[in-house]
Amino acid sequence: MPLLFHIVLALGVVHAFLLIALLTRRISENPFGFLSLIVTLCAVTLIIIEEWVVSSGAWQRYPNILRISAWMPFLIGPGIWGFVKSLESPDLRLRYLIHFVPALFALTLFLPFYAQSGDAKIAAVMNTHSIPISVSLLAVAKAGSLFAYFIYVRVRLGQFSPSARQRKLVRYASWALNAVIVFMMIIAIAFSAEHVVKRLPVSSDLAGALGLGVFVFFFSLISIANWSDFTTQKEPPNPSRNEPQGPRVELLDDASTEAVFNEISKTVHETEMYKIAGLRMTDLAVHVGVAPHYISYVVNTVTGRNFNSWLNGLRVAAVQQDLKLNTESTLLDVAFDNGFNSKASFNRAFQKELGLSPSKYRDYLSQIIK
């Protein structure tokens, strides 16, 4: 194996460990999603290490590395799926673990081999002169699992709301999935050719491990770099900061305050302006013909809430209504369609208004419908 290959593989392994460390440090931001990525990174890293040792001919010195990752491709698809699922629902459900059953089943198949001594493992490999049919079937199952998950996740990302699809994380993840699906097709062709010509410049196993590694590393990088798309509070500054300090100043009498608020409320409801992500008081002021500071004062006086909090209350009410009427849309799609521009602000507002998380509210609705 050329020296350049060793350098590239070494850099890839170091890069993987750095990503795992970074995700571990930030796991509290998205426990379900980032844990899924950590599992995926660990799996693809061990696959690369095994292929590195085998391709370099060092496996006889380290026989216990043999087939150590043979079952781990079954973890990659569920891991990527788990992260994308966390964009829709942050809670880890027990039923999600069913996605890892194939990996557990494959692991049990290799346990007898792992229990052997190093010499026995070497002997087993040395006595194998052709690719057993069981190995070929397992390879097909692993490739099928990867294809199925990658295509499903790509389709799922395409079903996100228009505003969600415009976010960098979703766009870049979609591009990465497009690329890896094409790559998997090429590897499938290479694997078939390997059975015919017996020898290729680079084994399909090594090429597949490197390609999956590049994909998972890139997917993890864009997930970390653009996670703020779904967490950062991007709403306008709290208008109460601009209000006079000290004794309260009456800007309007009670009747005028009520009238102005009714006009504001009517405009916001009839035009559904609360569905505009990042709606500012200055934008609303143009529609109702009232100065922004009057809007702040009137909303605060009548509702006891600042402008952003009042808007979020309207958005949560709209989300509740949509969830009752549409059980197919994801929580994230419904949130974006009703004016929330981040997952974190949606969860906070929903919890504040109803005292429970969006996912628990949907579970409550499903129980009522049943």
Rank of each mutant, 00 (worst) to 15 (best):
P132C: 10
L23I: 03
S256N: 08
S161W: 05
S145W: 05
R156Y: 04
D283G: 08
I27C: 06
L354R: 03
R280E: 12
Q116E: 07
V182C: 14
F150C: 04
P31I: 11
L323D: 01
S89Y: 09
M185A: 14
T108R: 09
R199S: 11
P73V: 03
L137R: 13
S220R: 12
I133K: 02
L104V: 11
G289D: 07
S134L: 15
I76D: 11
G158H: 00
F307S: 12
G57Y: 01
T257W: 06
G118V: 07
V316R: 02
A291C: 10
K343T: 04
V290L: 06
F150M: 08
N262L: 12
S223D: 15
Y172D: 15
P239Q: 13
R67W: 04
F215H: 00
H195L: 12
W175D: 14
P90D: 13
A176Q: 05
K168Q: 13
V216D: 10
L325N: 06
S359R: 03
S342N: 05
L157E: 07
K343E: 02
K324V: 10
W81E: 06
V13P: 14
T45A: 09
V290M: 02
R167P: 01
L35D: 07
P73G: 06
A173V: 06
N30M: 10
P78R: 01
I7A: 15
S55M: 07
K121M: 02
E328F: 08
R95D: 09
F346M: 14
Y361M: 01
F340A: 08
G211P: 07
K121Y: 00
N347D: 04
S342T: 11
F150K: 01
V298T: 10
I151L: 13
L3A: 11
N242W: 13
L94H: 07
S345T: 09
T327R: 04
L66G: 00
N64R: 06
S240Y: 09
N226W: 05
L9I: 14
A43Q: 00
L251D: 06
S203I: 05
F147G: 00
M1G: 14
S89E: 13
K142N: 13
A285R: 07
I368S: 08
I224S: 11
A207W: 04
F219R: 01
S256R: 08
S192L: 11
S309Y: 15
A193E: 06
V290P: 02
L3H: 01
V260F: 13
P237C: 14
V302T: 08
D283C: 04
S56H: 01
M273N: 09
S134Q: 10
F230D: 05
R171I: 10
K142Q: 14
L137Y: 15
S265T: 11
R25D: 11
L138P: 01
T327C: 03
I369L: 03
L22H: 04
E263W: 03
T303R: 04
P63N: 03
L35R: 07
N300T: 15
L157T: 02
F215G: 00
G118R: 04
M1E: 14
R95V: 13
D254C: 08
G12S: 15
S161G: 09
